[in-house]
């Protein structure tokens, strides 16, 4: 899908544009590159050559030391468990909501939608203390389940809003045909609506996973023990204590970036496929 049928020439100006965009890309990547360099240095090497020199070898001490110090494997598992559960549950809740709102067109659906939209735009500061208080009473404080419940509805609020508009343009003939064949509403949902909108749902799963993975504020408040904290919370708390030297800091940042970049690469295909699928709707 190139813009023009005629391939235009590459004049001086277009090379200049390319050069400035490459420069921009370098600036954007530089901080990440510096982190990678320094994560593999020994503290002695760092203090001798400074942060900008290339590492002389692959020193894994900083990374292993940090990994053991914060029990990073546990943090990683907490993050995967929380983000994965939220991604799946939030999509299920979004689909159910959107089925009632977009296809069922229940009375007052506009107001219900507004309510979900408000839930999505609210600052978490306005919810944090009551949730903190209630979760303590209910025994959900400092549990991964408690955080999963919170983010399931926060993400589903966005999913409901998006899917309702997608479902409202769902081909009516398909729904009517299924009903004439005697399918119940539940069967129509599971056998017709979900399979046909699968690409959009896949994109939502990915978004919810990454968004939940990157959440900081509510997990910071709700998860205080080593056994429940997520990767960003553990890193943020440690950073706040300012106890780490430069190479350990880099190692910790690298360990925080790697999973995010990995998801990005794994999911990139789903995302591009999903975005085009969404555009056709």
């Amino acid at each position: 899908m190139t813009t023009t049928s005629v391939r235009r020439g590459r004049g001086v100006s277009s090379w200049a544009v390319l050069a400035s965009l490459v420069l921009l890309a370098v600036v954007m990547l530089l901080p990440l590159a510096v982190v990678v360099f320094n994560a593999f240095k020994t503290p002695a090497e760092y203090s001798a050559n400074g942060p900008l020199a290339l590492p002389q070898g692959l020193n894994l001490d900083g990374i292993t030391e940090f990994w053991e110090r914060v029990d990073f494997g546990q943090k990683l598992w907490n993050s995967v468990l929380i983000s994965g559960s939220v991604a799946v549950l939030a999509v299920v809740v979004s689909v159910l909501n959107a089925y009632a709102l977009g296809i069922g067109r229940i009375r007052g659906r506009l107001w219900v939608l507004v309510l979900f939209l408000v839930a999505n735009t609210l600052p978490q500061e306005a919810l944090v203390y009551p949730i903190y208080y209630l979760w303590k009473q209910l025994g959900l404080y400092d549990t991964r389940f408690g955080v999963i419940v919170v983010f399931t509805i926060i993400q589903a609020a966005f999913g409901t809003y998006l899917l309702s508009s997608v479902f409202s343009t769902f081909p009516r003939e398909l729904l009517d045909a299924a009903r004439i064949d005697g399918a119940s509403k539940w069967q129509v949902l599971v056998r017709v609506v979900v399979p046909i909108s699968a690409p959009t749902l896949a994109v939502l799963v990915v978004f919810f996973f990454i968004w939940t993975w990157n959440e900081f504020f509510l997990p910071l408040v709700l998860l205080i023990s080593n056994d429940t904290q997520t990767v960003p919370v553990a890193l943020g708390v440690l950073q706040g204590q300012r106890l780490m030297d430069a190479t350990t800091t880099s190692a910790s940042a690298l360990l925080g970036i790697v999973p995010a970049v990995a998801f990005f690469l794994i999911f990139q295909r789903t995302l591009t496929r999903g975005i085009t699928a969404g555009a056709v709707k």
């Binding site: 954007m28 990440l32 960003p232 943020g236 910790s252 925080g256 995010a260 990005f264």
Partner: peptide, 13 residues
């Protein structure tokens, strides 16, 4: 790319 780095990690960097 910076968008997918967790905010907390971006802050650390």
């Amino acid at each position: 790319l910076p968008q997918i780095v967790p905010v907390a990690v971006a802050g650390i960097i």
